[in-house]
Simulated assay, not measured.
Amino acid sequence: MIKNNQIIWLAETNNFLISTDDSDTDSFSHVSNVEGNSSEIEWPDDEDDEIFFPPMQYFIRLRRRRVDDYMHIIDSWTDAEFKNRMRLSRKTAFRLIGELDKSGFIASHKFGLKPLESKLCFYIFLTFISNTEPLTPIATRFDISISSTFRVIRKVASWILTKLNDAIRWPQDFNEIQYICDNFHLKTGISNILGVIDRTHIRIEKPKNAREYCNPKGHFSIILQATIDSQLRFTNIFCGEPGSSNCTRALKKSPLYHTATHDRNSLFPHNTFLIGHSGYPSLPWLVPPFRENKRLTPQQREFNALHASARKLGDRAFILLKARFRRIKLFTVYRNIAFITDMIVAACILHNYCLNENDHLEVNHD
Rank of each mutant, 00 (worst) to 15 (best):
W43L: 09
G104Y: 05
I106H: 09
L96I: 06
F59L: 14
R61Q: 14
H109Q: 15
D46A: 13
S148L: 04
T136N: 06
E50R: 12
I73Q: 15
R151I: 08
T140D: 12
T136V: 13
M86C: 11
C121Q: 01
R65M: 15
L96S: 02
H72T: 10
T132H: 08
S148T: 08
E50A: 12
A139W: 03
T136Y: 12
P54Q: 08
I97P: 01
E40F: 15
A139R: 01
K83P: 01
F82E: 11
A107S: 13
R151Q: 09
S89Q: 05
R90Q: 05
D68Y: 14
R66S: 08
T140R: 04
A139L: 01
R141T: 08
L126Q: 02
S76E: 03
D46C: 07
A80K: 15
F52V: 06
P115V: 03
D79T: 06
R90A: 04
F150N: 04
V152T: 00
A93F: 12
I97F: 04
F53Q: 06
S118M: 07
N131A: 01
F94V: 14
D48G: 07
P137S: 03
I144T: 01
M56A: 08
E117W: 04
R95A: 10
F82P: 09
F94R: 15
P55Q: 06
E42Q: 14
T132L: 05
S103I: 11
P54W: 05
A93S: 13
K91Y: 05
E133T: 10
R64Y: 14
V152I: 10
C121V: 04
R141V: 02
D45Y: 11
W77M: 13
R87D: 03
I146S: 07
T136H: 10
P134D: 00
I74G: 02
A93Q: 03
P44N: 02
I144V: 08
L96E: 02
S118K: 01
L113Y: 10
T78N: 05
K119G: 07
T127D: 07
I73D: 15
D69R: 10
T149E: 01
L126G: 02
F59W: 09
D45S: 15
A107D: 03
D69E: 11
L100T: 05
I51S: 14
K83G: 00
Y70Q: 10
E47C: 09
D79V: 03
R87Q: 05
S76R: 03
E133K: 10
K114W: 09
D75S: 12
R63G: 09
F52A: 04
M56Q: 13
F52L: 05
D69G: 08
I124F: 00
L62F: 11
L116K: 08
A80Y: 14
Y58M: 12
I124A: 01
R64D: 15
S39V: 09
R64K: 15
L113I: 13
E81C: 06
V152L: 00
F142G: 00
F122W: 05
S89F: 06
V67R: 15
G98M: 06
H72E: 15
F125A: 00
D79M: 06
T92E: 04
R64E: 15
P137Q: 02
L126A: 04
K114F: 06
Y70A: 08
T127C: 09
